[in-house]
Every structure is written in structure tokens, then in C-alpha cells.
Design a protein around this nucleic acid. Sequence first.
DNA 1: TCCACGCTTGCTACCGGTAGCAAATATGGT
DNA 2: ACCATATTTGCTACCGGTAGCAAGCGTGGA
Lengths: 333, 333
Amino acid sequence: MAKRPTSQNVADMAGVSKWTVIRAFTPGASITEESRAKVMAAAGQLNYRPNLLARSLATNLTHQVAILVDDFENPHKLPVLERLTLELQAEGLVPMLVNINERFGHVHALLNAGQRQVDAVILFGTAFRNETLQDARLEGAAPMFVLARDSQIPGVPAISCDATIAIEELCAHLREQGYRRPGFMAGPQTLSTALGRRRSFKTFWVRHGVEHVPELPAKSYSMTSGAEAVRHYLQETSAGDRIDVLMCENDALALGALDVLRSEFGLRVPQDIAVAGFDNIMFADAPAYDLTTYEQPIEDMVKTTIDMILGRRERQTVQLRGRLVVRGSTKRT
Amino acid sequence: MAKRPTSQNVADMAGVSKWTVIRAFTPGASITEESRAKVMAAAGQLNYRPNLLARSLATNLTHQVAILVDDFENPHKLPVLERLTLELQAEGLVPMLVNINERFGHVHALLNAGQRQVDAVILFGTAFRNETLQDARLEGAAPMFVLARDSQIPGVPAISCDATIAIEELCAHLREQGYRRPGFMAGPQTLSTALGRRRSFKTFWVRHGVEHVPELPAKSYSMTSGAEAVRHYLQETSAGDRIDVLMCENDALALGALDVLRSEFGLRVPQDIAVAGFDNIMFADAPAYDLTTYEQPIEDMVKTTIDMILGRRERQTVQLRGRLVVRGSTKRT
DNA sequence: TCCACGCTTGCTACCGGTAGCAAATATGGT
DNA sequence: ACCATATTTGCTACCGGTAGCAAGCGTGGA
């Protein structure tokens, strides 16, 4: 394969120095129209475009942003990734997608991103331990931003959906519909950065006189875990003691639960039991599910994150307001 | 923020030259255990790691691979992206995710990837015109690979699921179940690279004496388009003339169709009409859908692509065999 | 006519590595 | 002890740009 032409090649052809070539490609640089035309003609012939790698090395700016993701099971990731890539690209930033898993952990990924000199790292909904991000080796690495999750780490801003408001709105709706025996399905609790949804949920019901809120623990944030969790709960609980509304930490769990409630236990939703989720994934809207849920302000979150990355906004944790989406799975009437 | 240390900084601290520092970090380089230890001690102190940008510039290898995606509506993208990122990372390659859309087309993306000196570009299921990829400006750009789609472009290998075998297997199953009035729901046909699924489907039924195979055109590969397409078909067709099995070009279309068949027209699946899809997305397995479908050999496709990128396998178009997944939506018995 | 000034162009030094040659040092055989 | 050979280390040149200074050039005013 032919080697890519460099500014020097273009310069030779146009009969100018390589710096003049560079200037022709630098907006606002000092160059005559005549030289620019000569350069552009030669560049067009040779099919020249500046090497961004070399530019990055010299300017110490790569315009690359790493996005760390660890849960590809959740369909919610897709629309956020779409938005994130779209908006990053609109700002001339290039998204680097990093798959976090057992073999490729946060520290590994962050060190790697650092070596590649990325301008910023977005931890998109990944489950991390606070200590991990405070690893000494990460000193002086690229600035980090936590998206769609909490973060207690000083200096690492989190941009997420305001869980307190969200859960208040959701619960107010559930109470209004007459539900009084709430249960909560929670994802893995091993991480200190667990979402505040569970806490807000309990707080609401305690305030309204419901002391005991059963918890259905799920192994992961997936449909199958949601199915398992509700199956286990129903097998262990007598019909009389059963909850009448199940709030799930996200839609994936909720949809898994819904399937089991209906197809395995023959329960009617929402007559026998209501179900609500969080995220408003595409399938929540399908007639087969018709799930009440809460939509995160994706666009707002993404734009806020990018504004912080570009320094157009103060880098600090913010919680943005989402939107309640009421559907059939919680409408008793 | 403190500037990252360079090999020179480490060298000064360890009392050696910067080249010795580099050698300490180069596997198999000629260096004494003693020097390496000195260097590593200093490097540890300073928290030094080689700058991969500089390395890439010098070696003309970035170990970056661009992945072009244009349809984030399809849930099938997620598991493939997971696998792709996982396997790329396992080979020390970094995935760059590029969102292709109206504002950011193929040529733009390819030129950009070229400027960033990526080692390869993967067109993952994107809808492109042949002429686009033959744009003169793309001369000498990074090698391209088409994943999960056909490609007629010479020099651009496509790695996809063998549609002929897949459709043969699917149709054989449908015929065996007694279905004799097949219909096909096709995605947008504007592109010359349309999938071969439709052709194979017609071929099968013509061979088995079914001359007329109605076609249900969908505007895009999404659930809502699938819903629309089937809605339109049922409104236009009298009950007697109706098909008894609907094959959809992918699962997203199939699930949208299923929802409409059941909830809007009160049809029973598979008794009144059977439905089959393609891709085996997560929700195809849900009790609410229980969709018969065909699973693409994701792992095999991804590994083959990477082998070609790394030059471990000849760069040529291959079609790999997937797996038929029979579920309730086509089981009459 | 001459010089001051502004715009344009070319230059050196640099970003942080790699490649491969040459010098310095270590090892071994006789 | 001494030289041949192998290993280790340092060096120059380079990858393809950027930054900012200095020289070249053209123009206008005195």
C-alpha cells in the first residue's frame, strides 16, 4: 500500500516549504490566497490530509474521549451510546469504546487510555469501587466523568438522573393508583456506588406509613436476573403476604420480572400486581410489556458531560431531571 | 495538571540514557537485569508509562480500529459490539466507535479515521452505496472490512452469516410445520447491498411450488417499521388471502409485527399466523415473544474479521454458518 | 529615494517515541 | 594475559506535525 503523502510531499509539488502547506490547512493562518491555491491544488492531486497523530503529539491534545462500558446486556446502553457518539463527533471528538470486564478492569483501561493520551474518560454506568479510581497509578491521568451513575469520589464529577425526584414522582403515581404494598428489586449491592433509587424508594413509603418494604435482590442488571429474582420471591412468599407493586431498579429487570409474573405464575399485570422500571428502553413501549418507567434525560446528560469535558461548564456533580412515563403496567383503573 | 513524565525524566532519575529506559519497556530488548531494575524503580516512582501516540507516529501503527455503525435502533448491535470490543482488546487493539448518520457520512468518517491513522475500519452492518466506498479521496486509506452484511466491492472483504443456508434451514422448518402461504417483510431496498435473505426466501418457496410470495416493505429496520408494515398489509388484505407465516428480515421487525398481530388484530401466533425473524436478539427469547429466529455466528464472525485485520487469514469475503433457533412462534403442533 | 511597518514565508527546536549503527563493556577461549 | 566475540549502551536520524522567531518582500509615507 502506498504511503500517505506528507506536508513535505505537497510542498515539493507546489514549490513551497512544508510550513506553508501546513498554513494552508490551518484556519486563520497567515498565507496569501495565491499560495493557498497552489497548495490546495497539489494537496488535491496527492490526496493529502494532515496526520492527526503527529498533530496530537505536538499539541498534547488528541480530541479522543474514552467511553468505559461494562454492561452490554442492558439495552439502555444503546441509545445513550448513540447520543454520546453523535454529540462527541459534533464537537470534533472521537469516541473510544472500552469494554470493561474481568479480564480488562478499570485500572487497566484507564492506564491504557492514559497512554493513548485521551483528553477525557467517561465512565458510562460502570460498576467500580471508589478505591479503584483512587489507585496511585492513575495520578495525573485524563480527567474522568461518571455518566448515569453516582460518584462519591472528589474530583470525579458525576452526571446522572436525579433519583430522588424520579422515585418521588413514580411512587406518587403508584400511591395514587391505590398500591400500598410496595416491593423493590435491587441490582447487585456489592458496590458502594449503588444507585440511590432504593434508598429514595424506601424513604417515600416509610414517610407514607409503610414500614416494611420487601427487597428482591437480583444478581445482575439483566432480564434473566430479574426473572430469577421474582421467581424466587414468589416461591418463598404466600399469596396473602404478597406485594401489590414491584419497582425495579431498571427496565431490564422489570421486563424479566413481568415475563415470569405472567407466564410462570399466571398473574395479571396490573390487576394482581403492578410493575414499574427505570430507563424507558425501547421494549418498555411494546404492547407486550407496556411498562411504566422513568426516562433519563439522555440528551441533557450527554450535553452536560461534553460541556464539562470541553471546559464550558464547571466540572461538578449534577443531577438532572427526567420524565415519568406512565403506561399500562401500573394503571389499575 | 502535572505533565506526564517521559522516558527522559526516568532516564535522568535512573542515571541512564532514555534509550535504556525504552528498552526496559520493550519486551525482548537487549538490557541487563540490573539496568532494567534501576529503570523500573525510577519509572515506578514517577509513574511513567510509554506514550503510545509517539510510538504510533514512529511505527506507523496505531493499533486502533474504527467501527462504523449507523443503526443504533437495532438491539442486535449491542451483543456484537460487546464481542467485537472484547476480542479487539484481547489483541491489543482499541476500538474507535463512529456513529454514521446524515450529518456524518461514510466518506467523512473514513477520511477522519484515515487522518487518525487507524489500522483498519470495520463497517458494521452499515448501509452504504458501493460508489461511496470507491470515492477517489479514499485511495490509500485504511483497509476496510464489512461485518454482518454483503459487499460487492472488490478489495473490501465481507464477513457475514450465510443467508442462503440460513433461509433454507428456516424455511425447511416452516414447511415441515405445515405452513404454505409465506410472506416476507423486507427492510429498505434502496441500497444495492440489500441482504440476500429475501432472494433466498423466494427461491425456496418457488422451488416448492409457491409462486406468489407477498412482500411487506418496511421503512427501516426497527420495531415501529415492522409494526407499520404488518398493519398496512392486514388492512389491505382480506382474511382469506392472508399469509400463514411471516418471515421478517430481522428480529426488530418481527417483534414489532408480532405486537401488532396480537394486540391490534387479535390474531394468535402461531395458530393463525407464524412469525420468524433473524438475529436472535435478547427479547426473542422472552416468553412474551418466544420468536423463532436464526442466530448469526457472532463470535466466529468477529474472530474471522480480526484474523483478517491482523493478517492471520486471507482477506476475502466469507459466509459463516449460523444456527436455527426454533421457538413457539412457528410451532403449530 | 529611503526607511518603517506589516504581511508572508522559511527556519530552528521540539513533541516522545523507534530503528539501526557505533562505541563501550562484558564474557570466554587459549 | 590477551584477543575475539557477544552483549549492552548511547547515539544520530527520523516519524509528521506545532510554536514562535527571524528573514524576505511589498507597500506607503516622508
